[in-house]
Design a protein around this nucleic acid. Structure first.
Length: 489
RNA sequence: GCCGCCAUCGUCUAGCGGUUUAGGACAUCGCCCUCUCAAGGCGGAGAUCACGGGUUCAAAUCCCGUUGGCGGCGCCA
């Protein structure tokens, strides 16, 4: 049997969003799992809204995610090219089949204005009937058609739905689905300007590019009978269909901009890792019997199957995504995180954030905060006090300094001197602090906390003694003296 | 209005007729670890499997209906 061929066919009318990524991912995983071919096709027949900018963003986002296509833009295979629908239109690919349908009487020219058609639909709806075009133009004589065309009227082409039958298919995810033909509208397959519509172009391209499995969101279920009827009319074999469940926002409506971040690039900017995004999205609508949560991409490829895909819609949960991202970051070595961080700064144009930061110290600081990083964007705020004069947080000053004025002052004043003679290793510093507490009859906390706030300006941070070691003797003593002056004099 | 899809803990889900006092993950709560914050370990709470009928010796699992949610109904894709 021939290798499966699947496709992701976005329209370049905006950013690549979460829903699109999930569709792309399932196609990608299916292709890789089956040793098939993953095709990328750009559906740019909406001349009003399609932009080159969008195309660029989509290609960039797919590459960033690691969902590399085998065929498509910049990877043209002559037999199936081009991969942009408007280019295919210019090559006359669609016209050929429009003519064929017209000749066979399976489609007809329609001169009705959009307003007239709209009127008919409303009429039908009033009568509690499916909203449909009333087919009046299908009865036009060749003479009448000629007259209209001589007047300069440009018709649309409508597909003639065969009446009194039904269209049935077995969906790979949902099983048996059927529609009565009679509820279907004689839909437009070519606009007045000659550009094919989605439902037609999609079928022609899927056939010509030999797509074997169409995997897409279930918002396309109601387009499917129309498309299948075209396959039949052209005597083409039908592809396998798989409709995945939709991703919802917290309010139960399909995920969209109003629910917050939906563009992939926004997630990139926040410092999410592609593997976390992909892992999370895979879990939305697909799962394994053992409920495994964390997968590497190769594991996803190995274990993915359409039969394990669910058919009920799922709510997008940013909290779990965040957890997963932290999990992925934690599983990396310090060196890997450091590299990822630098690449991320570059990709998001934020290299200035670490201007003048010592790279060796940065590396070690990341090591100290390793378990705390959930997003790459957390890193600068987590470690910036190593590189710039510390900002004393009000709450820290109140809680640690003011409330324990006497003991804090004692600790800092004495330490400013003592630390001149303590070896600046985490171990030695810890011994010093513990001994100091004992000798002065103070709890560990009464000694540790003031030192932490004096050195970092905050109550939260890395292990105190590692923090001091990394800062170095000179800097620590200087910061202690600053704190003494600012808050104890 | 017409057509279609869907329905298990707050969320993602396992379950594909008996092994289920319905399992796991996120979130949440408690305890432990601990110099803070995390991370980690242990444990708790949380689902009359939407509702009502069937089928069957046996149903979360199969069938029908109801309700609810969502989607589509463009010379958008």
């Amino acid at each position: 049997m021939a290798l499966p061929r699947v496709r992701f066919a976005p329209s370049p009318t905006g950013d690549l969003h979460i829903g699109g990524v999930r569709t792309a991912l399932f196609n990608y995983l299916f292709a890789r799992n089956q040793d098939g071919v993953f095709v990328l096709r750009i559906e740019d027949t909406d001349e009003q809204r399609s932009t080159d900018e969008s195309t660029k963003i989509i290609l960039y986002a797919l590459k960033w995610l690691g969902l590399e296509w085998d065929e498509g833009p910049s990877k043209e295979v002559e037999k199936y090219a081009p991969y942009f629908q408007m280019k295919r239109k210019e090559a006359g690919i669609y016209q050929k089949y429009i003519d064929e349908l017209l000749q066979k009487g399976l489609a007809y020219k329609c001169f009705c204005s959009p307003e007239e058609v709209e009127e008919m639909r409303k009429e039908a709806q009033k009568k509690k009937l499916p909203p449909k075009y009333d087919r009046r133009c299908s009865h036009l004589t060749p003479q009448q058609i000629k007259e209209k065309e001589d007047q300069g009227l440009k018709p649309v082409i409508r597909f003639k739905i065969p009446q009194g039958q039904k269209v049935v298919w077995d969906d790979l995810i949902r099983g048996h689905i059927e529609f009565e033909n009679d509820v279907l509208d004689d839909f437009v397959i070519a606009k007045a300007n000659g550009v094919p519509t989605y439902n037609f172009a999609c079928v022609v391209d899927d056939r010509l590019q030999e797509i074997s499995h169409v995997i897409r969101g279930d918002d396309h279920i109601s387009n499917t009978p129309k498309q299948l009827l075209i396959y039949d009319a052209l005597n083409w074999p039908r592809p396998q269909l798989a409709h995945t469940a939709m991703i919802l926002g917290p309010d139960g409506a399909r995920l969209s901009k109003r629910h917050g971040h939906t563009s992939v690039l926004e997630y990139q900017k926040e410092g999410y890792l592609p593997e976390a995004l992909l892992n999370y999205l895979a879990l939305l609508g697909w799962s394994t019997t053992d409920s495994q949560q964390i997968f590497t991409l190769p594991e996803l490829i190995e274990k993915f199957s359409l039969s394990q895909c669910g058919s009920s819609p799922s709510t997008f949960d940013p909290v779990k995504l965040l957890w997963l991202n932290g999990e992925k970051i934690r599983s990396k070595t310090n060196g890997e995180i450091y590299d990822l961080f630098l690449v991320w700064l570059k990709q998001t144009n934020q290299e200035n954030l670490i201007d003048g930061w010592d790279r060796q110290i940065l590396k070690k600081a990341i090591e100290l905060e390793h378990d705390k990083i959930k997003l790459l964007k957390d890193i600068p705020t987590l470690v910036d006090f190593f590189f710039k004069p510390c900002i004393y947080e009000d709450e820290a000053v109140q809680k640690v300094f003011k409330k324990n004025l006497e003991s804090a002052k004692l600790v800092l004043a004495k330490s400013a001197k003592n630390l001149e003679n303590v070896e600046f290793s985490a171990e030695a510093l810890e011994n010093y602090a513990r001994d100091f507490a004992k000798e002065n009859n103070l709890s560990n906390g009464k000694v540790f906390h003031p030192l932490r706030v004096a050195a970092s300006g905050r109550t939260q941070g890395p292990s105190l003694f590692h923090l001091m070691e990394l800062l170095g003797r000179k800097e620590v003593i200087a910061r202690i003296n600053t704190a003494l002056e600012k808050f104890f004099s």
